[in-house]
Design a binder for these strands. Sequence first.
DNA 1: ATGGCTATATGTTATAGA
Length: 259
Amino acid sequence: MKIATFNINGIKARAEALLAWLDAAQPDVALLQEIKSVDESFPVELFADRGFNVETHGQKGFNGVAVLSKLPLEDVVRGLPGDDGDEQARWIEATVVGKTAVRLCGLYLPNGNPAPGPKYDYKLAWMARMATRAKSLLETEMPVVLGGDYNIIPQSEDAASPETWVDDALFRPESRAAFRRIVNLGYTEAFRAREPRPGHYSFWDYQAGAWQRNNGIRIDHFLLSPQAADLMTDVQIDKKVRAGVKPSDHVPVWVALDA
DNA sequence: ATGGCTATATGTTATAGA
């Protein structure tokens, strides 16, 4: 089962590029972030025509997550549990039924800048809430996959110029500690488990020739429960997508599970 | 170069992203 995460930065603007990548990469499941669309405006038929089931959790203008799956999806949950007052569409869960049932969570973790400030407080509170959910999911003893745009640079090795990120919400000590707390519940960070070397990125800013200079950061991640980690056979970043026509500023990352 | 580009809707400017 090939499961991808891709922050597409607007489904309207990215439909063509996304379809081209789906045709080339042939994922079974794609977790999408920043659809920037309400549910009613998401072009479901574009993906249904290619054999995908589609579940969305959108909002007007910003944020928004979705799951595309060639396999059946069950027990869909929209929104990160734990705060009924949170109106931001950043979390969707579903069980994908293949050879093995896998619990999928697609997430778009808050950016948190400027830090310190209310947006940073929201990021850290959201991560604490995510930790609570991640812990509950471990207790199910199912294979669990938490995939998405984490807006976290886990280590210096995950940035081309780490010194420029020192005061940024993506790299501040509290952010990285909150990420580690989730990992330390018992999750495996899929890419880092397979690739110890620095210099692998999933985001390059549109500005200042960041792509041309390879001034990137690695912020799109998969965390796997022990039962999911045992099934992992591959993990890759589809870097070449960034050089395509009208690209997102993020590229797809995917894991293959024997599931 | 102290936000330089991109996307959306609040829409010929503001807001958000990272």
